[in-house]
C-alpha cells in the first residue's frame, strides 16, 4: 500500500516546506507555524480514532494540560524551555491516564463523553484560578522559542516531521497492527491473545504525549497561554475535523487536514464571519460524501 512513490512524494513536499521561508512572507510563515502544531495534535488524535477505534472528543484537554503545565512552570518556577516541555509531556500522559483508565472500561459512546467533560473541567479550572493562570485573558510566558519567524517556522516544521514520522511508523508497526485489530474487533483481538485494554491505553498515552508536547511548543511560540487558544472545545473540534478531512487511519492525512484548515481560513478571510461558515460547510460535505477524506480520495482514484 505504501508504495515508494508515496514516500518520495512526501519527501518532495517536505523539502518544499523546509525551503518555504526563502519564498514567502513572515505572515504566511506564522500561519503555517501554528498549523504545524495543530497538525501534531490532529495526528495524535488519529492514532486514537483511526487505529484504537476510540473517539476522543476532547483532544484539547491533553493539549491544554501540556500547554498550561509548561506555562506555569516557566512563569512561576522560571524553568527553562526544555524541562518545561518534558514536564508538559509527562503531565499530559498522567492526565490522560487518569482519564483513560476509568473511561476505557465504559462501552459505547461513554468514552467520548468523558473526554468531552474533561475539557470543560479543565477550562473551568483555568478560569476559576485566573489569578494564577491568567484565565481567559491569558498569561505571558517568560521565554519564547525564538523571535525570528524563520527559526520558529523550522522548529514547528521539525517538530511536526519528527512527530509525524514516529506516529506514522508506530501505526505501521506490529504494535500498530495489533492496536488496529483491537479497535476493529475487540472480541476477536482478545481471542487471539491480545490484551485490548493494554494496547488502547498505550495508544492513549502516546496520543497524550504528542498532544501535550504540541500544546507546550505552541504556547512557547505564541508567548502567551489562554484558555481560548489551547483548551477551548472549538480548538479540539478543529483537530478532529482536520484528521477526518485529511483521511482517517492515515496519520499523514491529519497533518494535511490541519494545514488545509488554517490556510483555507486565511484565504477566505475577506469573507469575514462567513469564512468559518464556508470552511465548516466544506468539512461537512467531505465527511458526508468522502468518509475517507483527502487521502481516501487519492487512494480511491488510483485503486
Amino acid at each position: 500500500m505504501l508504495g515508494s512513490r508515496n514516500f518520495w512524494l512526501a519527501m518532495a513536499a517536505l523539502v518544499v516546506l523546509y525551503l518555504l521561508p526563502f519564498g514567502v512572507s513572515g505572515y504566511v510563515l506564522g500561519l503555517l507555524t501554528v498549523a504545524y502544531y495543530y497538525a501534531v495534535a490532529a495526528m495524535a488524535w488519529d492514532l486514537l480514532f483511526g487505529f484504537a477505534g476510540e473517539v476522543n472528543f476532547g483532544p484539547s484537554f491533553l493539549v491544554g494540560l501540556g500547554a498550561y503545565t509548561a506555562t506555569l512552570l516557566n512563569v512561576y518556577a522560571a524553568a527553562p524551555i526544555l524541562p518545561c516541555l518534558l514536564a508538559a509531556a509527562a503531565a499530559a500522559v498522567a492526565g490522560g491516564l487518569v482519564l483513560a483508565v476509568p473511561a476505557l472500561r465504559l462501552r459505547g459512546p461513554y468514552f467520548g463523553l468523558v473526554t468531552l467533560v474533561a475539557v470543560l473541567l479543565l477550562q473551568n479550572i483555568i478560569v476559576l484560578f485566573s489569578g494564577i493562570t491568567g484565565g481567559e485573558i491569558g498569561l505571558a510566558l517568560t521565554d519564547v522559542l525564538a523571535i525570528d519567524d524563520h527559526t520558529n517556522y523550522w522548529y514547528a516544521l521539525g517538530f511536526m516531521t519528527v512527530s509525524g514520522g514516529l506516529l506514522f511508523g508506530l501505526s505501521r508497526s506490529s504494535a500498530g497492527l495489533i492496536l488496529q485489530a483491537s479497535g476493529q474487533d475487540a472480541v476477536q483481538a482478545a481471542a487471539l491473545g491480545f490484551n485490548v485494554a493494554k494496547h488502547k491505553l498505550a495508544a492513549f498515552c502516546i496520543s497524550a504525549l504528542f498532544s501535550g508536547l504540541a500544546g507546550a511548543m505552541l504556547v512557547f511560540y505564541l508567548g502567551t497561554a489562554s484558555a481560548g487558544t489551547v483548551v477551548d472545545i472549538g480548538i479540539g473540534v478543529q483537530f478532529i475535523i482536520a484528521a477526518v478531512l485529511g483521511g482517517r487511519r492515515t496519520i499523514i492525512g491529519a497533518a494535511i487536514g490541519s494545514i488545509f484548515l488554517i490556510v483555507a481560513g486565511e484565504v477566505l478571510r475577506p469573507l469575514g464571519e462567513l469564512s468559518t461558515f464556508v470552511v465548516s460547510s466544506f468539512a461537512l460535505v467531505v465527511i458526508l460524501f468522502l468518509p475517507g477524506g483527502f487521502l481516501g480520495l487519492l487512494a480511491g482514484r488510483r485503486g
Binding site: L170, S174, A175, L177, I178, Q188, A191, K198, H199, A202
Partner: peptide, 30 residues
C-alpha cells in the same frame, strides 16, 4: 469465529501475521 470484522487496508497474509504476533507494545517489527 463465524466471521469477524477484517481490517480495511491489510491483506489476507497480514491478517494471519497479526495472529502470529506476541502481545507486546514494544515489538515494532515482526
Amino acid at each position: 469465529f463465524q466471521h469477524s470484522q477484517p481490517l480495511p487496508r491489510q491483506t489476507v497474509l497480514e491478517h494471519i501475521e497479526i495472529a502470529l504476533l506476541p502481545d507486546s507494545l514494544l515489538r515494532l517489527f515482526a
